[in-house]
Amino acid sequence: MAGMPSAHSSGDSRAPGTERDGGTWVVIPLFNESSVIAGVIEGLLEVVEHVVCVDDGSTDGSAEIAEAAGARVVRHPYNLGQGAALQTGIGYAREQPGAEFIVTFDADGQHRVVDALAMVALAREEDAAIVFGSRFLDDRTRPGLLKKAVLKTAVWVTNLTTGLTLTDAHNGLRVIRIDAARAVNLKQDRMAHATEIVLQLGRTGLPYREFPVEVLYTEYSRAKGQSLLNSINILVDLVIN
């Protein structure tokens, strides 16, 4: 599987000296992030060959910018939600020839490319099917006190319902091996998908790891971040089938 020529390579020819990872597909749900998405994609394309952006009905030209930056853009006809976009991206990536790993990555630039790379390396080394990024394995990431409390509650609920023992929930950075990705079928279109995906991956019984990542809380991502009240929506979405 590894090293197979890819179906399409976005037609760019950057980074001559360095070898880019051809078996890893980065999936980015994209909705109105025109000011940051190009930088995120360019950073990723320096180290991986395939970046798929699922444009979830952006109205600010994000899709065109992503395409120009070298990403493969799959377009939703209208806005469906981040969970829906993630599922579309995973569905697209897992049917690509030569795909070994799918990396889920946020569009707003809060994740670090080095973390994603290290997680793929960990999955390869330790033969893990799933690597979850966690911002609570070390103390680099500093969310606010209230945000931390909400996130920790989310972790508790997730562990309770999924039977896994994770230290972080709702972290958008994950590495999913292709066999595990086939088990993912997200029905939660909105934010509750973050718990649902852990549940579905946990049910596969495949080996998983956690990896300490740093989440960059910039002014931008803070402004865009989840409101705390939205966690109530997430709970309700999860409880009502």
């Binding site: 699922v54 493969r72 799959v74 377009r75 939703h76 006809p77 209208y78 469906l80 939600g81 829906a84 599922q87 579309t88 569905g91 697209y92 029905k187 279109d189």
Partner: peptide, 17 residues
Amino acid sequence: LSRANTQLARELALAEA
């Protein structure tokens, strides 16, 4: 209905891709 709608939209997006 909204789940069915999502699936329909997704199939459309994937077919186009």
